[in-house]
Design a protein around this nucleic acid. Sequence first.
DNA 1: AGCATACCCGAGTAAAATTGTCAATTATTT
DNA 2: AAATAATTGACAATTTTACTCGGGTATGCT
Lengths: 143, 143
Amino acid sequence: MRMSTKAQYAVRAMVNLNLHSGGSPVSLRDISLRESISLTYLEQLFVKLRRGKLVKSVRGPGGGYLLARPARDIQVDEIIDSVEESLVPVACMDQKHGCLCDDQCVTHNVWHGLGERIRQFLSSITLADLTEEAQRKIKQVNS
Amino acid sequence: MRMSTKAQYAVRAMVNLNLHSGGSPVSLRDISLRESISLTYLEQLFVKLRRGKLVKSVRGPGGGYLLARPARDIQVDEIIDSVEESLVPVACMDQKHGCLCDDQCVTHNVWHGLGERIRQFLSSITLADLTEEAQRKIKQVNS
DNA sequence: AGCATACCCGAGTAAAATTGTCAATTATTT
DNA sequence: AAATAATTGACAATTTTACTCGGGTATGCT
């Protein structure tokens, strides 16, 4: 039961983006340097975040990425969904048409319930929450 | 975010064991046939379940495995712990001495909180709960 | 126009984890 | 002794993860 580093990177990158954007685009190069994530890997992640409508891109010099919506309206589970990390703990429940083992599996309800808890928790946290927390931590270090 | 099949198998096997044991040992061969899990793989799992003190083994003909404690006292999170599946979602939190990134990571609290929710949920379910549920499902099919 | 910046995209790849198998042994009962 | 069944360690196939690489394309600046 592990959250992939892909998902972890995506969340970190989004917080960093929000933290350093004063309305103007932030380049992946900057995020790469600050978060020590390889540029090419970040590119991969942001393609998905853009397709997930969480960020907008601005091309050309001075370009970069912007949040597509206010940070308050972006939930952590959406970030993870965008980079294609399933939040459901078992494979048979990925399909939308429900699980084949519906009736047979005794353990079905356990994983289903667990998936719901995970979703519930991660959807209760917004990018704004994380950004504020980051700002507090930065202040602490500087004082 | 996936529960490994190893953990899923372990839970299924434990339910099946409890379901078919009337106080007498159940052989892995029987569980293997009923749950369609390879015998040799089951052996691997039960070594760990035994070390985790969830089952006791009885060797020789008529032997097999028994629950080490009443099913009501066995929680699902213990089964998963035994087969060495971490319930904490990120690697840096596995060590008991705490996470190095404690202060720096903004996202630390997210994963920590998530881990706690997962643990909380899985510890609220006992092997007895799952066994009763299985019995109800069997009745439904037979009626 | 030409150049630099920065996003865009698909393919490939090495390492790690997962999911097992195989062979040989030990303990117990009949 | 023979059969049953757990015990153990080594090993192997497959899949997933976490990347890199090599090219593109759009935009702004001089």
